[in-house]
């Protein structure tokens, strides 16, 4: 579904990584780890088409990102649910409308109904539905971001530190949601520093752990 082939990315003349390959296939579950500043977020942005690789090929659902039209990229993003590190909400819209935003942007607002309520209940935000994003705590924002990422039942879910601000119990709850979606055939890629989350996931699914280090993507050690 998403494939990076020998990808390099440079920013401001400095090469962040090179010769990097990654394939997100249906049902795959990947964790991405690495020190801060290694380029994890950049790698995720390449995966959902916000950035364009300096060299190498990025294929989004079989299409070369460089050859895609702007509408083509938009259509591909509808198949990718993203949890951003900084959540990226529209602060003037209530939480419920923010979560439903991918549906409305895709012209599917008529399909938003009970699913939205169920999803908000699952992430524990039923009482915050009418609040504005700035009124939410860090953890609530991350839960809302995850709900928004999965509301369209996308083929690929990409999450950047999705449990950074939530307690252990809620992180397990969110992980369960991602695992269930993965079992339905969705590809999942999570960038995280949370080793406990990785271990918990590996206990439930066949997860592959990758480490971005020294500009290369490597398989993590057996301890993970």
């Amino acid at each position: 579904m998403i494939e990076l082939r020998n990808v390099a990315y440079s920013y401001g003349g400095a090469e962040l990584f090179s010769d990097l390959s990654l394939s997100l296939t249906p049902g795959s579950f990947h964790f991405l780890t690495g020190p801060s500043g290694a380029g994890k977020t950049t790698l995720l942005k390449l995966c959902y088409g916000e950035l364009t690789a300096t060299s190498g090929d990025v294929l989004l659902f079989g299409e070369d990102k460089r050859q895609m039209t702007r509408d083509g990229v938009a259509m591909a993003r509808r198949r990718i649910g993203v949890v951003h590190q900084d959540c990226q909400f529209l602060d003037h819209l209530p939480v419920a409308e923010n979560i439903a935003l991918p549906m409305t942007a895709a012209g599917r607002q008529s399909e938003v109904g009970d699913d939205l309520n169920d999803l908000m209940a699952w992430v524990g935000l039923t009482n915050q539905a009418a609040q504005l994003p700035p009124q939410l705590s860090g953890g609530e924002r991350q839960r809302a971001a995850l709900a928004r990422a999965v509301i369209t039942s996308p083929d690929v879910i990409i999450a950047d530190e999705p449990t950074g601000n939530v307690d252990w119990e809620m992180s397990q709850r969110l992980l369960t949601l991602l695992v269930e979606l993965n079992k339905m055939g969705k590809a999942v890629l999570i960038a995280t520093h949370d080793l406990n989350l990785i271990r918990a996931a590996k206990a439930q699914v066949q997860a592959r752990v990758l480490r971005l280090r020294n500009r290369k993507l490597q398989a993590a050690g057996a301890d993970l």
Binding site: L90, P102, A106
Partner: peptide
């Protein structure tokens, strides 16, 4: 930027 990230087309 947010609208783009959730898959909104330019026309929308």
């Amino acid at each position: 930027r947010v609208l783009r990230l959730v898959g909104a087309r330019d026309a929308y």
